[in-house]
């Protein structure tokens, strides 16, 4: 068996696997299955409302004596004290906002790990989205302009040029074939 024949025979099953109808169906089945799985798996059970309020607060309040840790992860004594404060005030019936307000009055705005979404600090929340929109718009515009300008056809003399160059390469490789691969000497087309 010549290598050319091997190449040709290896392509036959590949073609049969590329049936578009089969592939389309496989994509549709996949999309439906994943959508169902995500709907089922979407919701994550997370304790009572009280536990959830406490967990969110602990995640969003900075440990007073640390640089960047929340009281949820810090083990510093100050963090433990704040955790106790949060639990006590929630149990006394305060809302999370009231607890936050109390902690801000006691430690300043910097006690919140997230900057407030009102006032001038709104900027830090809005800018990333804005930058994303601007960047996506710029990229979209760039691609649109480029792909409109890109209608360059391959002309016949270009192809002739390439063919001549390839023939010259093959000739230099010295195996006499018209379209031989110079690297391996392997014929790349299964002759007539």
């Amino acid at each position: 068996m010549t290598s050319a024949a091997g190449l040709a025979s290896s392509e036959v099953p590949r073609r049969s696997l590329r049936r578009p109808a089969f592939e389309r169906a496989a994509w549709i089945v996949l999309a439906v299955a994943v959508a169902v799985a995500l709907v089922v798996g979407w919701h994550r059970p997370s304790g009572s409302p009280r536990a959830q309020e406490i967990a969110t607060l602990e995640r969003d309040i900075k440990c007073p004596s640390c640089d960047d840790l929340s009281v949820a992860v810090s083990t510093a004594p100050t963090a433990i004290a704040v955790r106790h404060t949060i639990v006590r005030r929630i149990d006394e019936g305060q809302t999370p906002t009231e607890v936050e307000q109390y902690l801000i009055s006691r430690y300043g705005t910097a006690i919140l790990l997230d900057p407030p979404t009102s006032g001038p600090t709104l900027l830090v929340w809005v800018l990333p989205g804005l930058a994303g929109v601007v960047a996506a718009g710029a990229l979209g515009g760039f691609l649109w302009r480029r792909s409109r300008a890109a209608a360059v056809a391959v002309e016949a003399d270009d192809e002739a040029l390439v063919r001549a160059a390839l023939a010259a390469m093959a000739g230099a490789a010295g195996n006499g074939r018209t379209h031989g691969s110079p690297e391996t000497g392997r014929p790349v087309e299964p002759g007539p």
Binding site: A110, L113, D114, P115
Partner: peptide, 15 residues
């Protein structure tokens, strides 16, 4: 923010 407003603010892990 501190330079412009004189107030301290934290931008931490949740952000």
């Amino acid at each position: 923010y501190e330079a412009f407003s004189g107030q301290q603010v934290t931008v931490g892990a949740p952000f």
